[in-house]
Design a protein around this nucleic acid. Structure first.
Length: 660
RNA sequence: GGCCCCGUCGUCUAGCCAGGUCUAGGACACCAGGUUUUCAUCCUGGUAACACGGGUUCGAAUCCCGUCGGGGUCACCA
């Protein structure tokens, strides 16, 4: 085995953003290849013409690149890189700089890296571009009578299934006993020429198949349960089972790491490998298999892309917000040829009228075409309105439908609910660092089995460590639940441990993508704010929380009555008088930065022989309205000297003792 | 339902393959103290698990069998 280089692959189907379970698969494949000095292949399995999209494929490449999981062979992709140990691709800091190209460009400057390419000449890496290869192998199987054309319609198959179920048997397609090969091939040729559909099925050999799995051990499957599965679909594309076996062989894949949901597919793949031969006559080889446990939600449900829709949908039932949601949805679907004011008025009226009792029952009664007709005379707008309404109604009725992410996010905000993070993009938006996500995910189903010096288990590690230590032997067998609290704890520790320069840079990059308004508002106070934020957040996405007072204008500060009473009204001297006294000192602090401010506060308290708390409390209330804030120096510096004086003045007026 | 996989604290796990050192270790969460100008940190301590029943053995979390429980899969999706 040491003679053959390790080649692993990650083969996602481009039907959406990269799912968190997919990330772990990719991560393990990547780490295993790195560990053994092999190659990591990225292949796009886009044989489902209905569901695959170019956008999704690109999204997945971006997701992987952001995570720092770089591929050796695969679609070319140029990324900006920071720094990183050899062999480990560093994380992207400026995501906007990602560029992709089908053919990789020559390696750029030090700050750029190119993923993918076809150094071994085993591409292309989109299955839709490999159709001729599948066809070649398909014909060989057909000629050898290891596969045969079949002509049942999906209706007929459904009927056969129903029949089997009625007999309480599991359906298992087998070649008809009266199958006439001659006739079938003639029919196939006729259909081919006429452009009519037909499928090709594999003649599953009648012998049991043993799968050797590095994680689960030896597993025997008896042939009774493997049917004559389809290998060529009616549209001429190969099925997953067929394409995966051919591509893995042709791309030299030696190790297949994938989720346990594929375990039952493995005998099919092995059966195919056993009869297929390469151009040079060499038989297909069986790769080393390693099936990994699945990842679930804390409530045991399967982590699904539909979870976000599910949550929003369940919050929509019997909800008063429906008119607003419906109106908002329709408004955003009408991006061009906007409605006139009159039409808009009608739309609002119509929606209000139909959602009077605020229940979704009314939504179901909403007739798309009727609404469109009521609102406008313009044909193109009628179409848009009707389509928009139909989409929303369909989404609500059909649990398998998904709304666009922007729509989901807006509705969720409207309803004050938090969307669960499912896709890589969700975690990125929430402000998790890619290496933290990878660290946590690596621990779900794998464990280095090492101890720290203090005797605790080694759990926190980086990508370089993973590349050095990852092994198949230490992959667990049982499914795991995704624990968001633990991820958050890892994230918080990681952010807190960042170098003083790194955190602002990382936060800035995040803001640039997800909260540019914050960047504008903070202006040159950004670094100062970052300093206050760093030790107080679990994720970058929480960055507004610790500095909320900065984002609120002085006159809009609401004073917490409890805090006012405790910090300003009680005690002798009371907070108000200490505050009045300190205001004069405040004006003299120069420069108005955290350290001098802290020093001035300290000196002030010592001079008057009062505890720090006697001044800190009142100051916090004055500046923030509450008794919770970042460090005093930072808090004051963030609002500026003038701002601080204004706020103290404002506070003194608003919070004067009632009996004075 | 058939087939397949799995079963250690609430969660992720170490220990299992090469039975004794396991009155089962760690992490996250939780609880209680302590440090700190509030918060967040940080420190100390605590609650908490071998699914159940049989075997094998001097001895079982570890090996075997059964029961129960959980999951996956049964597509012209991957």
């Amino acid at each position: 085995m040491p003679d053959t280089p390790v080649i692993t692959r990650f083969a996602p189907s481009p039907t959406g953003h990269l799912h968190i379970g997919g990330v772990r698969t990719a991560l393990f494949c990547w780490a295993y290849a790195r560990r053994h000095g092999g190659r990591f292949v990225l292949r796009i399995e886009d044989t489902d013409q209905k569901r695959s999209s170019e956008d999704a494929a690109r999204g997945i490449l971006e997701d992987l690149a952001w995570l720092g999981i770089g591929w050796d062979d695969g679609p070319g992709f140029e990324v900006a890189r920071l720094s990183g140990p050899d062999g480990v691709v560093a994380r992207l800091s400026e995501p906007d700089q990602i560029k992709s190209s089908e053919q990789p460009e020559s390696p750029g400057s030090e700050s750029r890296a190119t993923y993918g390419g076809d150094a071994r000449g085993v591409g292309p890496f989109y299955q839709s571009q490999r159709l001729d290869m599948y066809k070649k192998y398909l014909n060989r199987l057909l000629e050898a009578y290891l596969a045969y054309p079949a002509f049942e319609t999906s209706e007929e198959l459904a009927a056969m299934r129903a029949e089997a179920q009625a007999r309480k048997e599991s359906f298992c397609y087998r070649q008809r006993t009266d199958y006439d090969r001659q006739h079938a091939h003639a029919e196939m040729r006729r259909r081919e020429e006429a452009g009519e559909p037909f499928v090709v099925r594999f003649r599953t050999p009648t012998k049991p198949i043993r799968v050797v799995d590095s994680v689960l051990g030896e597993i025997d499957f008896d042939e009774q349960h493997t049917d004559d599965f389809v290998i060529r679909k009616a549209d001429g594309y190969p099925t997953y089972h067929f394409a995966v076996v051919i591509d893995d062989e042709l791309m030299g894949v030696t190790h297949v790491l994938r989720g346990q949901e594929h375990l039952n597919n493995t005998p099919k793949h092995v059966a195919l490998q056993q009869v297929l031969t390469r151009d040079d006559g060499a038989p297909f080889r069986m790769p080393v298999y390693a099936h990994m446990p699945l990842i679930f939600n804390t409530d045991c449900s399967k982590m699904s892309k539909r979870d976000k829709d599910k949550l929003v949908r369940s919050n929509c039932s019997g909800l008063r917000a429906w008119p607003r949601i419906t109106y908002w949805w329709l408004a955003t679907r009408i991006t061009e040829g906007k409605l006139t004011d009159e039409e808009n008025g009608k739309l609002k009226w119509y929606i209000d009228d139909h959602f009077m009792d605020g229940t979704h029952v009314e939504l179901k009664a909403l007739q798309p075409d009727c609404l469109a007709n009521q609102v406008t005379q313009r044909p193109e707008m009628r179409v848009r309105l009707a389509e928009g309404t139909r989409q929303l109604v369909d989404w609500f009725r059909d649990k398998s439908r998904q709304l666009p992410t922007d729509a989901l996010m807006t509705i969720a905000r409207d309803l004050s609910i938090d969307l669960p993070e499912i896709d890589v993009e969700d975690f990125r938006r929430s402000g998790y660092l890619p290496e933290v996500l990878c660290n946590y995910l690596a621990l779900l189903g794998w464990n280095p089995g090492l101890k720290n010096e203090d005797g605790t288990d080694l759990e926190r590690f980086d990508m370089a460590f993973l590349c050095e230590h990852f092994s198949l032997e230490r992959i667990g067998k049982s499914n795991a639940k995704f624990d968001r609290d633990k991820l958050a704890a890892f994230s918080q520790a990681s952010l807190a441990a960042m170098e003083p320069d790194d955190f602002p840079r990382e936060l800035r990059a995040w803001c640039k993508r997800y909260d540019p308004a914050l960047l504008d508002t903070l202006g040159n106070r950004f670094d100062l704010a970052a300093r206050a934020i760093q030790p107080r957040v679990k994720t970058l996405g929480q960055c507004r929380e610790p500095i909320g007072f900065v984002l609120t204008p002085a006159e809009a500060i609401e004073f917490d009555p409890k805090a006012v009473k405790k910090a300003l009204h009680k005690g002798d001297p009371n907070g108000l008088s200490v505050l009045t006294d300190f205001r004069k000192t405040l004006a003299t602090i120069e420069p108005f930065e955290p350290e001098p401010i802290e020093a001035a506060v300290k000196a002030f308290c010592e001079a008057r022989e009062i505890g720090m708390g006697k001044l800190a409390g009142p100051l916090r209330v004055a500046i923030t309205g509450s008794n919770v804030s970042p460090g005093l120096g930072e808090t004051l510096a963030l609002v500026g000297k003038d701002g601080a004086i204004v706020r103290i003045g404002h506070c003194l007026e608003e919070c004067a003792l009632p009996n004075e």
